[in-house]
Amino acid sequence: MKEDFANRSVAGRPGSRSGPPGPGALAAKVRTMAPSMTRSMQRVAETVAHDPAGCARLTVTGLAERTGTSEATVVRTSRLLGYPGYRDLRLALAGLAAQQESGAAPAVTADIAVDDPISEVVSKLAHDEQQTLADTAAALDTTHLEAAVSALTTARRVDVYGVGASSLVAQDMTQKLLRIGYSAHSHPDPHVAVTTAVQLQAGDVALAITHSGRTVDVIEPLRVAFERGATTIAVTGRPDAEVGQYADHLLTTSTARESELRPAAMSSRTSQLLVIDCLFVGVAQRTYETAAPALSASYEALAHRHAPRQR
Rank of each mutant, 00 (worst) to 15 (best):
T252D: 04
H187S: 12
T73R: 00
D51W: 03
V169F: 08
Y86C: 02
D111N: 02
R13S: 07
H191K: 04
G54T: 06
A294I: 10
A303E: 07
T136E: 12
D277V: 02
V121F: 05
E260Y: 04
A241T: 01
S259F: 04
S271I: 10
E146G: 05
V30A: 14
G181F: 08
V169K: 06
A151R: 10
S259C: 07
S254T: 03
A27I: 13
S166W: 03
S267T: 12
A6L: 15
D51H: 06
P14V: 13
G12H: 03
G12A: 02
P106N: 03
E260D: 12
M37N: 09
T290H: 02
T132Q: 03
R17F: 05
V160F: 15
A147Q: 07
G19V: 01
T143I: 10
A25S: 07
H187R: 08
A104L: 05
E220P: 03
V121Y: 00
S166R: 05
G82Y: 01
A64I: 05
R309W: 07
H191F: 09
A34N: 07
S166M: 08
E129I: 14
L273S: 08
P263H: 04
L279W: 10
A301D: 13
A64Q: 11
V275E: 01
R90I: 12
T210K: 09
Q310F: 06
M33Y: 10
V283R: 00
H191L: 11
S9D: 01
A284E: 06
S9M: 09
A45N: 01
Y299K: 02
F5E: 04
L222M: 11
V198H: 15
I276C: 12
R214N: 14
T142C: 07
T215V: 14
A56V: 05
E258V: 14
S259M: 02
Q99V: 02
T32M: 15
T290Q: 05
D277I: 03
T77Q: 03
K124R: 08
V158G: 04
T287F: 02
V216G: 06
S267H: 00
L133D: 03
A137Q: 05
L177A: 09
A34E: 08
G85L: 00
R309Q: 12
G19T: 09
L168N: 12
F226I: 05
V275F: 02
E242D: 11
A294R: 07
A265D: 08
V60R: 11
E242H: 07
A25W: 04
R17Y: 08
E71M: 04
V30H: 10
T67R: 01
S16N: 04
M1I: 13
R286Q: 12
L200P: 13
H50L: 04
T67F: 00
A94S: 14
